[in-house]
Simulated assay, not measured.
Amino acid sequence: MIEKRQFSEGRRITINEIATSTGLNRMTLSKILNQKGYGTGTETIDKLCAYFECQVEDLMEHVPEDVPKEPEQSP
């Protein structure tokens, strides 16, 4: 979403700018960007959706974990 907004506005957008505009901590934003699977709260997601004027699904996607299936049982 950062790249999309930068393109539409024709300028660079920094983490500090997003932090200032949303009231979110810069470290939180950095973790969201750099740590795959970083868990964050709904308030943070709501603030980012408002900033980017987007829907939740524009910010994230569900990636299922590789959970081994239990073997099927015979009757």
Rank of each mutant, 00 (worst) to 15 (best):
M1E: 15
M1G: 14
I2M: 11
I2Q: 12
I2P: 02
E3V: 01
K4E: 13
E9R: 01
E9P: 00
E9W: 01
G10W: 01
G10T: 00
G10I: 00
R12W: 07
I13Q: 05
T14H: 11
T14C: 04
I15D: 00
I15W: 00
N16D: 14
N16A: 15
E17C: 07
E17T: 09
E17K: 10
I18R: 03
A19Q: 07
T20C: 08
S21W: 00
T22W: 01
G23T: 06
L24Y: 04
L24N: 03
R26A: 12
M27N: 13
M27P: 07
M27Q: 14
T28F: 01
T28S: 10
L29V: 04
L29N: 06
S30E: 10
S30W: 15
K31C: 12
I32H: 01
L33A: 07
Q35M: 11
G37V: 10
G39A: 15
G41D: 14
G41Q: 05
G41I: 07
E43A: 11
T44S: 03
T44E: 04
T44V: 14
K47E: 05
K47Q: 08
L48A: 02
L48D: 00
L48P: 02
C49S: 06
Y51V: 07
Y51E: 04
Y51N: 07
Y51G: 02
C54D: 03
C54Q: 02
Q55N: 14
Q55I: 09
D58Y: 08
M60V: 15
E61G: 04
V63K: 08
P64W: 01
P64N: 00
P64S: 07
E65Q: 11
D66K: 14
V67M: 12
P68D: 04
E70S: 08
P71A: 03
P71R: 09
E72M: 01
P75N: 05
